[in-house]
Design a binder for these strands. Structure first.
Length: 438
RNA sequence: GCCGCCGUAGCUCAGCGUGGUAGAGCGGCUGGCUGUUAACCAGUCGGUCGUCGGUUCGAGUCCGACCGGCGGCGCCA
């Protein structure tokens, strides 16, 4: 199907196309996101990954072959079209392309399984995630995710951090043993990593400042809207940093990420109906004791020393419109490697970073024990297998300075940024306690 | 690991209390329409009621076990 007038067509993306002047002859490649034909009119909504644009065919204006193909083409078929760009108030975003030639490159079978009825079923959409990710909403979330990840890399590289990767296959747990995925490794039992932290602690004596961004695995049987069994964690560790430095680094990172998304991904946020504001620093800080007092005032009671229950965390989270820190956690609510305050050995130098509006915890950080004997004592009093932590302890024998770090969950941040009910929407192919397909 | 709820058409659900051979809306398909956007109009197809067993003349409906899913808690990023 060739037409001499289309010979000069310039191949562009929809994004580029939209900025061109009316009358431009363009070639677009993409998929039929939607179509409707009304008697002698044929409409196709074209998606090419950059954006959407309406294609139009008119009997008497477009030739008969073009009209036939436009009416027959199935939803989600891959096509190449050439046509004339023009403004029309009736089209999406006020622009459309009058089709001159159309070629079906890969015809999709009919019917396309996702329609306005099946879209009401979350489990259907996740069972068909390999198809449903083509949708406007899920692709917007993924574009924001991509921006978030780039912003994080830019942030750390600009500040002289070295990017490292840690093994996903590990011999021992970082924290408790119950939350590990076990697998067989040449006749030995090994585990999928929960955190890169210990490896980062080794690396700081080589690089000073390091960060990672890689999958972490948790076998927690957590059926909640904020848990995935596999997720991406950004972790940073810095030699000579105090907990104060550590919190400043976290708020700088999160503010940088949020402000970048607000600036660059307005369109995607609009599609999601999310009004996200830029983030101000410093973030508010409240102490564990204050959280507990507030919770008790609202009838949520818990013992001093227990971790903050979800209900209390949500209550406090809803009181803020900006991310904030909870600090000064009791040692009983924290892992063995946390350093304690000099003036109060019951309190750790650690924090949780909490997203507002009820979303809750997105990061945890703290200053680590750098003294050999203190760490040894802590491993023993927690009844942990000394042999497993030999190398971790060994680091403290060879010039380990005070240091601090944190881990921030990419999907947790994204869930808040996009205002999503469930964290599974933040992952292209989410892994939850009940889902490993597709 | 604990508590609660739900499995009936492709999807969302009604029917179950008082047992008597299955319903709606949406979607799909076919046709119509010169401005569609969650189109509209007409027609049409569509179900071993999660599985197995029990009670009964008869079970979608009552009982039991199992399987699957959802919501919440604990734990966490």
């Amino acid at each position: 199907m060739h037409d001499s007038t289309t010979a000069t067509a310039v191949r562009v993306t929809v994004d580029e196309c939209i900025t061109m002047p009316d009358g431009s002859m363009v070639e677009l490649r993409g998929w039929v996101a939607n179509k409707s034909d009304i008697g002698s009119l044929a409409f196709i909504l074209l998606r090419d990954g950059s954006s959407y644009i309406q294609l139009v065919g008119k009997k008497g204006v477009s030739n008969d072959d073009v009209m036939k193909v436009m009416k027959d083409v199935s939803i989600e078929s891959a096509i190449v079209v050439r046509g004339i760009l023009r403004s029309d108030a009736r089209a999406l975003n006020g622009k459309e392309v009058l089709v001159k030639t159309i070629e079906v490159i890969a015809r999709a079978e009919e019917p396309w399984p996702i329609n306005k009825s099946t879209v009401r079923s979350a489990s259907f959409l996740y069972d068909n995630r390999h198809l449903s990710i083509r949708g406007m909403k899920s692709s917007s979330i993924m574009k924001i995710r991509s921006e978030l990840i780039k912003a994080a890399f830019d942030f750390f590289y600009d500040r002289g951090f070295t990017f490292i990767t840690a093994p996903s296959i590990v011999g021992t747990a970082v924290e408790g043993g119950a939350t590990l995925f076990e697998l067989e490794y040449f006749g030995k039992k090994v585990y999928l990593t929960q955190s890169a932290q210990f490896y980062e602690e080794a690396a700081i004596c080589s690089f000073g400042k390091v960060f990672t961004m890689q999958p972490a695995f948790r076998a927690e049987k957590s059926k909640t809207p904020k848990h995935l069994t596999e997720f991406i964690m950004i972790e940073a560790e810095v030699a000579f940093n105090t907990q104060e430095d550590n919190m400043r680094l976290q708020e700088d990172l999160l503010a940088y990420i949020c402000n970048r998304i607000v600036e660059k991904r307005k369109r995607e946020l609009d599609i999601l109906g999310r009004r996200l504001n830029t983030v101000e620093r410093p973030f508010p800080r409240i102490k564990y004791d204050e959280v507990r007092e507030t919770a008790i005032k609202h009838g949520i009671d818990f013992e001093w020393g227990e971790d903050v229950p979800t209900e209390a965390e949500r209550l406090v989270s809803k009181m803020f419109t900006q991310p904030f820190f909870i600090t000064d956690y009791p040692i009983s609510a924290r892992s063995f490697y946390h350093m304690c305050r000099e003036d109060d050995p019951r309190i750790t130098l650690s924090s949780d970073l909490i997203a507002p509006e009820g979303f809750g915890e997105i990061a945890t950080g703290g200053q680590r024990i750098h003294d050999y004997n203190t760490l040894l004592e802590r491993i023993r009093s927690n009844n942990l297998p000394l042999e497993s932590f030999r190398w971790y302890l060994d680091l403290r024998r060879y010039g380990m300075p005070p240091h601090a770090g944190f881990g921030i969950g990419v999907e947790r941040v994204l869930r808040w940024v996009c205002n999503l009910k469930h964290i599974r929407a933040t992952s292209l192919f989410p892994r939850t306690i009940t889902r490993v397909y597709p």
